[in-house]
Amino acid sequence: MSEVLLHYTRGGKVESVHRADVAVVDVTGKMVWEFGDGKRPMFWRSAAKPFQLLPFVEQGGVEKFKITEEEIAFMVSSHSGEAEHVALAHALLAKIGLTIEALACGPAKPMSSKMAKELMVQKQPFQVVHNACSGKHSGMLALAQMLQVAIAGYTELTHPVQQMMYQAVADSVRMQKETVETGIDGCGVPVFYLPLYNMALAYARLAKPEEGQWGQSEKSVRLIRDAMLAHPHVVAGTKRFDTVLMNVTKGRILAKIGSEAVYCLASVPDGLGVTFKIDDGSYRAVNPAGIAILKKLDLLSSAEYQTLVEQFPPVLKNHRGDVIGTVEATI
């Protein structure tokens, strides 16, 4: 059962709490730390993206379409819809002979409030390229084009693209495909339901591909990992925790958010995977939870920790900017 991880205080009194479950797994598959229920099953949401991209990379898509490292990072991103991300969407789709009309993720408000405001001021509609998952969908379309299968229905579980990704996810988490249940994600494609432990195991294997027993997939896994670490801003965006954390740790920690406050981390030198799920799905808890867990695991230097809390202060402010409360971890 989940346990209380964060206290939100006001006037020195606890006003709200966030419960969480955490799994920390090494590359051998050992659960090295657990908070709450580390084997709680949950939808992986967008934190599964690095592994959904594997079939495209393994099948030679990078070489066939001359995909750049930055474009690989875009295909696993949950981006903010900033100008850089929009440009990457157009460029990538052009390489595979398609346009944004092929994207079936649906238009969405950019995660970047600045970009959203600019569009509204210009009276421009939100488009599919502003959708945080347009990179993933571009990767799915790229795989369809490479396989020379119809792009119509590419979001359906029965489509060859989804079946290949489904198998890749199962292999990455070391589960039989039939034991990984599915649902529908916010962007209309299959999403995978599995234990937090297995999510963390996949990230441990991503952290150290050379020790992750990937077999022939090792080179592809390393390519995806290195692309994410080389282009943190593409993976998320300005002032986003994923991006800031990868920059602050200089690529030692890889980070990837998923909706409903599922979050995955990989400590590259340690071969550790970390997955946590905030019980109520609240995004406000993700940043302080991530920082607290990394501090608990001694995966941040004192300077890195200080930089992170400066950028994501564990305090509550009122509309005047006065500090009126704190965010305190229980671990």
Rank of each mutant, 00 (worst) to 15 (best):
F56L: 15
V315F: 10
V24F: 00
R40A: 14
G139K: 07
R252D: 00
Y283Q: 11
K136D: 09
V27C: 06
E118P: 00
V327H: 04
V189K: 06
G271F: 02
V268S: 01
T182M: 14
V309T: 13
L272R: 05
V180I: 12
G135M: 10
A266I: 04
S2N: 09
K256D: 06
T243S: 15
A266E: 01
W44H: 12
G321E: 09
R252T: 10
R205N: 06
A152M: 11
Q176C: 05
Q59C: 02
L299K: 02
R174I: 04
T179E: 15
T275M: 15
K64Q: 12
Q127Y: 10
K49H: 12
T307E: 14
A230P: 06
L229C: 06
S138D: 06
R45A: 10
I184D: 07
K256S: 02
R174T: 09
G60S: 11
E304M: 04
T28C: 07
I324R: 02
I67D: 01
T243R: 00
V309Q: 10
V128P: 03
R222N: 08
G212P: 04
M199S: 13
A132Q: 14
A116R: 05
F65M: 01
V57C: 01
E260Q: 09
H7E: 11
H233M: 13
R19G: 03
L206F: 14
L147A: 12
N131L: 08
L88A: 05
